[in-house]
Design a protein around this nucleic acid. Structure first.
Length: 505
RNA sequence: GGCUCGUUCGUCUAGGGGUUAGGACAUCUCCCUUUCACGGAGGAAACACGAGUUCGAUUCUCGUACGGGCUACCA
């Protein structure tokens, strides 16, 4: 049987790191096994629907290179792929459960359920459930007469609840955790069908996975404890033989302290938790994405893949194809991983370093344009080449190399205080006049010229180099001064020296 | 509270009954460079705790602690 997996997010907001990783692992597993990767939108809760969230999810997957073969906008043999559009399909299965006695009608109002919880609440049991014990004291088709039930059903105000067995253990195999077992007495009678006519996640999910012939359910660990219900549902429907295999992924945790990574953590610690920028339609609040923060999609995906999975070798840099080849569910860890932004930066740096000057220039040009800088590509490529080993993000080329595009407006004070003395002006004027005669202005030529000048004038390199650098760039760090001079060209180099020497007096 | 999953350097992790417990990020030192990086060399740094099994447990078992998840007509 060919592998079919789905990523099934709820469009309640932007995808976060954990969601993208779940999608990635599904994608890798599908590709590894020559299977199909499906996107299914689980929008059964109208109240939590957020406009734009679905498009965001699709955009984010696309940016990461996680292209789905079936899903909204693409469709395929099992369309539609939005649960809201599949609404009519679920009723039949709900009725089937009623008929087989595995589900029942319940008519309790929220207030009545709350009253039950209040009444039964004890110190030992602060949150009594609607379950195999309490249902006998509630308003449902199990306690009401046939006529009473029919009358209330006719009124249309009801939900369908799963009739959980109450005894025995529900045991299933998890690809990551091996055998997992839950005592049935602790499971509650979950609502399967809501009074608004929509199924809940549990019903829709199982029915759709069945109808779409899903073979492996790879999802977050937050679903582990509702899996016994899902397993039971497969049994109730008589679908045990086609029940998918489960793999529950450990969560991505916040970098400091404990708990699940949240948007707040990102804001507080200064890093994104979403792949792309997101603007909340409610509050108008904007959240920065990894893309906008300067991450390359390949680096982002690579980083995410290694957060909870490892190849068992010491290789850390993987292209998507390499990830597909190396991936296996068996090598996914069991425990949650704390997200480390420093390591994420390292991945981006590694990818930037690997890129050619042409590729880097193509990435940098738009950034330059945004900042009102127009330069020919040949020059930008050379700047990228010189700066490549000193940057983590594309934007760094501009911030760290601004002097390639603009004359310095100030000079590093420390250097001036330490290196600019009364004789400096004379020395630099002499240097400039001799430099004016230099025909070859290549880096190597300027290098040789300056060294000769220092030797002939009985100076130390320290008397010339630091100031020379600061006159050209304003700052103390950067590529070799001679490279900067050569790139700037003779004319600009001379001009900057002249302006600087005048300014410093 | 109940149910459940988990626990190797600060972080991501490898390993697995007998290892100098390996790598990467971060950190520190040195080299390269009269800059900053990159790169190279080296350092510091971990098996949560207690029993049991065993000739021997970090590895197996059971407890404990700690942490996560779930405990909605949310997913």
């Amino acid at each position: 049987m060919s592998v079919r997996v789905r990523f099934a997010p709820s469009p309640t907001g932007p995808l976060h790191l954990g969601g993208v990783r779940t999608a990635l692992y599904n994608y890798l597993f599908a590709k590894k096994n020559k299977g199909v990767f499906i996107l299914r939108i689980e929008d059964t809760d109208q109240n939590r629907y957020v406009p734009g969230a679905e498009q965001y999810i699709i955009d984010a997957l696309h940016w990461c290179g996680l292209d789905f073969e079936e899903g909204p906008g693409i469709n395929g043999a099992y369309a539609p792929y939005r649960q809201s559009e599949r609404k009519a399909m679920y009723r039949k299965y709900a009725d089937q459960l009623i008929e087989s006695g595995n589900a029942y009608y319940a008519f309790d109002t929220p207030q009545e359920i709350e009253a039950m919880r209040e009444r039964l609440k004890t110190k030992e049991n602060p949150a009594p459930q609607y379950d195999h014990v309490t249902r006998s004291a509630m308003k449902n088709s199990l306690t009401l007469s046939k006529e009473g039930t029919e009358r209330l059903v006719a009124e249309g105000k009801y939900v369908l609840r799963a009739k959980m067995p109450g005894v025995g253990d529900i045991t299933f195999q998890d690809l990551i955790r091996e055998e997992v077992s839950f005592p049935a007495h602790a499971l509650d009678d979950k609502v399967l069908f809501k009074s608004d006519g929509m199924p809940t996640y549990h019903l829709a999910n199982v029915v759709d996975d069945y109808l779409m012939k899903i073979t492996h359910v790879i999802r977050g660990e937050e679903w582990l404890s509702s899996t016994p219900l899902h397993v039971l549902l497969y049994k109730f429907f008589g679908w045990e033989n086609v029940m998918p295999q489960f793999a529950h992924l450990p969560l991505i945790l916040r970098p400091d302290g404990n708990g699940k990574l949240s948007k707040r953590d990102g804001d507080r610690l200064g890093f994104p938790v979403f792949p792309l920028n997101w603007k909340s339609p409610d509050t108008g609040e904007e959240s920065k994405g990894f893309r906008e923060r300067g991450f390359l999609p390949d680096a982002f995906v690579n980083m995410l893949a290694l957060l909870g999975w490892n190849p068992g070798t010491e290789q850390e840099i993987f292209s998507m194809d390499e990830l597909i080849a190396a991936f296996s569910i068996e090598r996914i860890g069991k425990s949650g991983s704390k997200f480390d932004f420093e390591k994420a930066k390292w991945f981006n740096q590694q990818y930037l370093h690997k890129k050619s000057a042409q590729e880097l220039a193509a990435l940098l040009q738009p950034v330059l344009k945004q900042n009102g800088i127009e330069r020919e590509n040949a020059f930008v490529e050379q700047v990228c080449d010189k700066l490549r080993d000193r940057v983590t993000f594309v934007e760094d080329f501009l911030t760290a190399g601004i002097y390639f595009f603009k004359r310095p407006e100030s000079y590093d004070e420390k250097t001036i205080a330490k290196r600019w003395n009364p004789e400096s002006k004379t020395v630099f004027e002499k240097l400039m006049s001799e430099l004016a005669a230099l025909q070859d202005f290549s880096s190597a030529a300027v290098d040789k010229f300056v060294h000769d000048f220092v030797a002939e004038n009985n100076l130390g390199l320290g008397d010339v180099l630091p100031v020379f650098r600061v006159l050209l760039s304003g700052v103390t760090q950067g590529p070799a001064v001679f490279d900067i001079a050569a790139l700037l060209g003779k004319e600009e180099t001379m001009e900057r020296m002249k302006l600087g020497v005048e300014k410093l007096g």
